[in-house]
C-alpha cells in the first residue's frame, strides 16, 4: 500500500512539475515564436509586395478585426504598414480563397488610393506545372496597379489574363485579391 501511494505521488509530482515548467516555457516563447513565424512565412511575401520603406513592418504590425465568420467569431487580419519618414505609404495583408485543390493564401500590398502595389502567393497546393504557375511573376505582376474594379478576369471587364489550363487556380487568386480589396476601406481608416 505504501509503495502504491509512493508511486502515485512520484508520478503526479513529476507530471505537475513538467506541466508547470512547460506552461512557463510556452508563455515565455510566445512572442519570439510569433515573430519567427511571421518572419519566415510571411516576410518573403511581404517584401515582394512592399517597397521603399525604412521601418520594420513586422514589429509595427497591427491586428485588426475585419468582420465575422459564419459562427459569429471575429476574423482577424494582421496588417504590415510600410513607412518612410514615419508616414505610412502602403500596407500589406493577406486573404484566402478556394483554388482548384485547396485554399490559396495571397499577400497583397495596397497604397492609400486602394491600388495594388503587388501581390504574392503565400501558400497553395495547386497542381505543379498547371495551377502552380500562379506563383510565377508573369502572372502576379499583372496585378500591379490594379484596383477593386480592374482586378478581375479580362473576360469579366477586368485586366487579368487567366493562365491557360488553370482556370480555377486563377479564379482562386482573383477571389482572394478581391476579398482583400473589399476589406481595404476599413483597414484604411485604421492605418493611414
Amino acid at each position: 500500500m505504501r509503495d502504491l501511494i509512493k508511486m502515485v505521488v512520484v508520478l503526479a509530482v513529476i507530471c505537475t512539475t513538467s506541466g508547470v515548467v512547460l506552461s512557463y516555457v510556452n508563455t515565455a516563447t510566445e512572442a519570439p515564436r510569433e515573430y519567427q513565424y511571421i518572419k519566415f512565412v510571411q516576410e518573403p511575401s511581404m517584401k515582394a509586395v512592399l517597397s521603399d520603406y525604412d521601418n520594420d513592418p513586422i514589429k509595427e504590425r497591427i491586428k485588426l478585426v475585419v468582420g465575422e465568420n459564419e459562427e459569429g467569431n471575429p476574423i482577424e487580419t494582421v496588417v504590415f504598414p510600410a513607412k518612410k519618414g514615419g508616414k505610412t505609404h502602403a500596407v500589406a495583408y493577406s486573404a484566402t480563397a478556394k483554388g482548384y485543390h485547396d485554399l490559396i493564401e495571397v499577400m497583397v500590398g495596397v497604397d492609400p488610393d486602394g491600388t495594388l502595389t503587388g501581390i504574392s502567393i503565400m501558400t497553395h497546393t495547386e497542381t505543379p506545372g498547371l495551377g502552380a504557375r500562379i506563383e510565377e511573376p508573369e502572372f502576379t505582376d499583372q496585378f500591379q496597379g490594379l484596383d477593386v474594379d480592374t482586378a478581375k478576369l479580362s473576360d469579366e471587364g477586368g485586366q487579368v489574363d487567366a493562365l491557360s489550363g488553370a482556370t480555377f487556380s486563377t479564379a482562386g487568386v482573383i477571389a482572394a485579391v478581391g476579398s482583400a480589396l473589399e476589406q481595404f476601406p476599413q483597414i484604411k481608416k485604421e492605418t493611414f
Binding site: 508520478l11 513529476i14 507530471c15
Partner: peptide, 26 residues
C-alpha cells in the same frame, strides 16, 4: 520507484522534447 520508472522517464523525456519544439520554433 522501480515499477513506474519507465513511465517517469517517458514523462521527463517528453517534457524536454516539448521544450525543444518550443525553443526551435522561437
Amino acid at each position: 520507484p522501480g515499477k513506474v520508472r519507465i513511465a517517469s522517464y517517458i514523462v521527463v523525456i517528453a517534457s524536454f522534447v516539448v521544450m525543444a519544439e518550443l525553443l526551435l520554433q522561437a
